[in-house]
Amino acid sequence: MKALAARPRLRGALAAAAALLAATSLAACGNDDSGGGSGSGSTGETGTMNVLAAASLTEAFGELADDFEEEHPGVKVKLAFDSSATLAEQVNQGAPADVLATADEDTMQTVVDQDGTVGEPSVFATNHLVMAVPKGNPAGITSIDDLDKKGVTYVVCVDTAPCGKLAVKVLDASGVTAKPASEEVDVKATLSKVELDEADAGLVYASDIVTAGDKVEKVDLPTDNENLNTYPVAALSGAKKPTLAKQWVDLVTSDQGQRVLAKAGFGKP
């Protein structure tokens, strides 16, 4: 009985391993194909380009990096994700990077003020807050007013983070008086409290819900102008690969880039 019970799990693990192998070998094939292609996207610049991006862009930029590398043989896109404020600070301290994409314009402005960007940053996406609730929505949350219900536990980002600044605006505009149970340090930490079902609701970005999959459910919030963050991207003046950096900005703002971003839950600029 025990052996029987164990076998499907073993088979599952084997299948997963096989799938992983297949996926990596397929990916390798894909690279080979593009390597043998026309190379029309080549700019003369090869090597590694460093892209710094807000944590919420992890999935979208990951996919775009694959596309970019395919179009530019010999180029490797190195992505680093962190909170926008941390990345902007790193750029201002002289970190070697070619492109910066942040989750709000205030943060990007700190780099513009130091003449850290080439020209004006381009806004390429928007994001707004929604409520994440645990799978099955145990507390029966249907609108933001339900956060005021007795016994409802909700979490937000701390107000030093862009998502927390936005949460304060949204909660004020909705007249919610109940205090959050916790102010988490960033949006991923806020989401994980909901994923673990320790909180009945969390205010997170619409894009985070998409990437969280089926562990959480979404409850929409009103999306007036108060509830909106705009994402700027810019080639940096300290770039080692200025042409590639410019092309990355072009890709992100192109139709192709917009499709990937929309799929990841971002809004149009």
Binding site: V155, V158, S182, E183, E184
Partner: peptide, 12 residues
């Protein structure tokens, strides 16, 4: 911060 959270007065 992971287990107890972060709120002024109670857990910060």
């Amino acid at each position: 911060i992971t287990f107890a959270g972060n709120y002024p007065g109670t857990t910060r």
